[in-house]
Design a protein around this nucleic acid. Sequence first.
DNA 1: AGAACTTACTTGTGAAATGCAAGTGAAATG
DNA 2: CATTTCACTTGCATTTCACAAGTAAGTTCT
Lengths: 149, 149
Amino acid sequence: MPKKKPSPKRRSGCPLNASVEMLGDRWSLLILRDMMLRGFRYYKEFLESYEGIATNILADRLRKLEDYGIIATKRDPSDGRKLIYSLTAKGIDLAPVLTEMVLWAAAHEETRNPALVREIQKDKEKFVAAARQRWAENAIRSKANSTLP
Amino acid sequence: MPKKKPSPKRRSGCPLNASVEMLGDRWSLLILRDMMLRGFRYYKEFLESYEGIATNILADRLRKLEDYGIIATKRDPSDGRKLIYSLTAKGIDLAPVLTEMVLWAAAHEETRNPALVREIQKDKEKFVAAARQRWAENAIRSKANSTLP
DNA sequence: AGAACTTACTTGTGAAATGCAAGTGAAATG
DNA sequence: CATTTCACTTGCATTTCACAAGTAAGTTCT
């Protein structure tokens, strides 16, 4: 079921290298955080997210994430200008990576959002499961909406 | 005990953003992989690692990782030309991040090193514990060596 | 229907990061 | 003491990035 790409021109076959080639930049994981944790779906929401990504970079990253099969795109049925960006199964599977990165930074750096951190620390598995649950529900709703007359 | 930097000029206080600002590039995590999993300690080893990092980039990344407190540097007592790079506690704490990234890529991409992947899949916690164990033993040995007459 | 506005981009330009080749100085080796 | 090894640095071409401005398609207002 999960599509695996032969993926041309990779520097090495190491799985960590594959991850780094897809996600190793200063924006991709933040976009995925916004989708996963904040429920962002529209271009404009990402553009206005706190860290301030440039519009050309955002367009480029969304295109690459879609090429990698991490996110999917479709027209908003209720507003033809908008595109709805959503996580694929491959995308939501990054939840454990994001949570570990949050835990690591929280342990070793001075950061904000202690509520999020404490929730993850309390029960990591539960946090990931909840993220998956929200994603699954959203996928169902989204499917229902797309089949409206 | 863990030093937390006030860290000037960060784009946001989000812990994920902190991680991404330190590790979000195409090389840093590969260097850490080589230290953690392959036991690399010398500049030349990293230079000759499979993915082929350029020497100026390597020097830059090692300097930054040291600035962030993720790795530490000392002279090799048995050869004054060499520097020994080693993981700090903050560095070895990235083991869970690396393992999750390996698992994700292994699940969704075509990669090599199935032995490593299977070992991690078999028991994630155990794999991380073993990495920590190796690190702790190495730290003891290293300390002993540095106090030789 | 037409003007004004939104949305999701693209394009242009300068600055910064990257990749490659060559060079340097300190320390070890023969 | 000449040569080699090691950990870099320097110079330069290429790529990526950030910022500002513009554009086409679709929607809302009147």
